[in-house]
Design a protein around this nucleic acid. Structure first.
Lengths: 112, 112
DNA sequence: GAATCAATTTGATAGTTATCGAAATGTCGA
DNA sequence: TCGACATTTCGATAACTATCAAATTGATTC
């Protein structure tokens, strides 16, 4: 991918920069990655990698890759606890994105 | 790309299928495509291709490609009027997607 | 320390796609 | 009909990325 780092920042759903928004949408654009995100969300929360592994039809290497993508995009946090890693959603990110999308969709456009 | 057709359907923000959601997110994931969508939204509405052309640093061929992607994903309508084509947002689509994203982000997850 | 298990990194590969120039199609006015 | 203009299609190319097997790193237990 690319992207420098995750601005480990304030939790208020502020505004997303263009670059960050693009990174997030790209991260969401892969079906396996989206499914993983759904699993994390559904899990109450901290989801172990092994559980993630069981939920997706991909190899450990590929899962690791996707986790990194989601983390880099700032969509999840990864708590590394010894041998195990736990995944959680970063709250507010999806909501911020959603707000931006909805804003585009509000306007006096009579389709067609 | 892929995708069969645009279910020219009811305008209520119903539910998106997985496949459709993926198609939409993929369409949004390209910066030029997103910028085009923003232009359309900002334009009051029907945006001529030439205006789009002027707003983006890409060739006509590439613009045509992106328009088709957005249309195939069901994000825009294209009204073809003789020599000119006019682009409008399909209302409700972005909102439906946003609703799905927000739903993921609501839950008892104390990040970290 | 050795064995074991979890996760990551390292190649390598196959599939996808954004991009353009050039050619084609389609529309309109002279 | 011809030329000018808008848009699309074609063909080719470069960049990106999802994927895996194999090797590696790191932590835990014996």
């Amino acid at each position: 991918m690319s992207v420098v780092a995750i601005p480990e920042k304030s939790l208020q759903p502020t505004r997303l920069t263009r670059a960050r928004r693009t990174a997030i949408i790209k991260a969401l654009a892969d079906p396996h990655r989206f499914a993983l995100l759904e699993q994390i969300a559904k899990a109450g929360c901290p989801l172990g990698c092994s559980q993630a592994r069981a939920a997706l039809p991909i190899s450990a290497a590929t899962l690791s890759h996707h986790i990194k993508e989601l983390e880099t995009a700032g969509l999840i946090n990864v708590r590394r606890e010894g041998k195990f890693h736990y995944l959680t959603l970063r709250p507010g990110v999806l909501t911020a994105l959603a707000a931006g999308l909805t804003a585009l969709d509000t306007g006096p456009c009579a389709a067609h």
